[in-house]
Structures are given as C-alpha cells and as structure tokens.
Amino acid sequence: MPHGTFARFIWPSFLAMILFIALPIVSVAMQSFFVEHEQVMREVENCGPFTCTTVLQVDVEATEALKADAPLGRYNGLGTYTNRGHLAFDEVSEIWAASESFGGFIAGVYNLPFYKALFFTLAYTFVVTPLVIVLGLLIALGVNRLPKVTKGPTIFASLLPMIVTPLIGGLILFWMVDADGIIGATLQIIFDDPDLSLKASAPLTWIMLMVYGVWHSTPFAFVVFYAGLQTVPTDTLEAAKIDGASRFQQVRYVIVPYMMPLLVFITLMQLMDNFRVLEPIVSFSAEAKARSLSWIIYNDLSGQDKLFGSAAATSMLTIFGVAILLTPVLIKTWRDFNRRAV
C-alpha cells in the first residue's frame, strides 16, 4: 500500500493515540516537575474586648489568584521525585546508616509509602501471574476431557469472572468474605475465632486480593490455552503415546512446548494488567493494609486538594516500571524482526 493511502487510513486512529496517550505522558512528565503553590499567608489583627493579637491567616483570594495565574504550580525540579512520598533518597540513606542488618534495612524502606506500594504491586504481579497460568492450563486440560455436551456451559460459567467489571467482581467477593458474609462467618467457625476478620490483618488482606486476582484472570488463561489445545497436532501426541510417554510426560514434553507462544502472550498480558491493579483495593477497602502504585496515584488525584505534582511523579515512576517489564519482550521482538528481515 502506498504511503499516502496508508496515511489516509491510519490518521484518525493515530491522532487519537498521539493526543490522548502520548501527549498525556508528556503532560505527566511536565507536571511531575511542579508542586502546588504554597498558601499565601497574611497577618491579620484580631482584636478581642481586651487585647489585640496578630495572627497569620490564609489569604484565600491571593492563593486563588496565584493558582489561576500558574495552574501547574511552582517549579520544583526533581524535588517531588526525591521527597519522602516517592523515592525518598534522604530517608533511605538514613535507614541505610542506622540499620545493622540487611533485613532491618529492608524493613525500614518498606515503611516508606512509595516502596510499600511498589512492593505490593510487584508481589501481586509476580504471585498472580504464574498462578493464573498454571490454573488456566489445568482447567483447560480438564475441560478438554469433558464430554462434548458439558463443554459449552462450562466455558460460559468460566468466562463470567473475567467478563464482570473488576470493581463489581471485587465487591461480590468482598461481601462474601466480610465477617458477616458467608465465607467470612464460615472461616470464623472453622478456626473457632469469633474475631477473625480478613480485613484486619495485612497478610490476610494480601492473600484476599491475590485470590481475587487469580479468580478474575484465570478464565483468560483458560480460554487461550483451551483454544490452543484444539490445535495440538494429534500425530505428535499419538507418537509420544506409542513411545510410552506417561500422561504427565505428554503434557510436559508435547503440549506445553507446543503452547509456548500462547504462554508468552498470556504472561505479557497478565504482567501488564496485574501491574496496574487498582479496582480490587477500592472494592475491598484494603487501602489500610495494601496499596498499589495505581492506588496512590488515584488517591492523590481524588482528594479535595488534587496533588497533581505528586501523582505525576508516581505516574512517571510507574511508567518507568512498565518500561522495565516490557523491555525483554521488546528486545525479543526486535531480534525476531531483524532475523526475519535478514
């Protein structure tokens, strides 16, 4: 297709992506160098019946005027990145100096808000993704063995956790594990502990969120693997069987290698989606025990005073994280592409 025709077909879509995905990233980068204006203070004389005192008061008008004048705020350079709420260089070096063991250092750093969120996000991503892949493959293998009549309804039911709105799916599970809900109350009876609450302890909250993540994403892996299973060449499988491969060996040495591209695809999608985890934390009201990077940005932006600078700095760091996650994939694509070109 000639360049001109290509351009004529692609421009609306291209323009939309430039305007609303590429430029916002530039806008985020800009905003991250600025912070909110300080409030303009004014001395006011307060006269009671006996004495007069001067107090400092916020000059609302002047502050508003300043905000309208320079909506970005005042220039702060890399100050937002290095402050306590983000990379916290000063605090980290203090902790490094003060702590005697490496474990103590990690524990100290873990108490800083950004690192705490980063830690949760990474833990969530790298626990949920492998579990989703393993469970998805197991369910796909199981469903593949079912009699034909039951396959359709099984797939229908399996799709629901993935299709449902994440916030809604989270809420449904949350109400069930609530101390008064069916699962929560049952757990209390099983462990014979009437005060047991999944919300009150940090490890249980983490487990709950990860269980939600697995519940929500397993159908995706299942469907992709299931479709892949339909295309596994029967000759190769038969040959393996004749050579005496056990069932496990068939799966391990024939089916899994054959589905490797699918596995890479699922891993990539899951890494992207799990890294942005936000909704379950909102619907489980888990912010006291578990915060993700997305959640801190959401929190900065949804307050009464919108902390654009802080949110933008966290966003830039998050985008940096995504870039690191994607690098292996991009390098592989680059190599494949060059090999094909040669």
């Binding site: 290509f6 985020v28 905003q31 997305s294 966290t314 966003s315 998050t318 994607l326």
Partner: peptide
C-alpha cells in the same frame, strides 16, 4: 507491508501497557 506499520503496532503495544490511571493524571489538569 512497510517497516513502519510493524513499529506502529509495537508502539500500540507499549501504549496498551500504560496503566490508565497514569494517563488520567496527565489529563486532569
């Protein structure tokens, strides 16, 4: 069939990976 079509698709993949909330913090102001 040109090279840039391939790179556009890769760019789209990178855009697909952007967490939506980071983009929102770019839009809001």
């Amino acid at each position: 069939g040109y090279r840039y079509a391939f790179w556009l698709l890769i760019a789209a993949l990178v855009f697909r990976a952007m967490p939506h909330i980071t983009l929102v913090s770019g839009y809001l102001l």
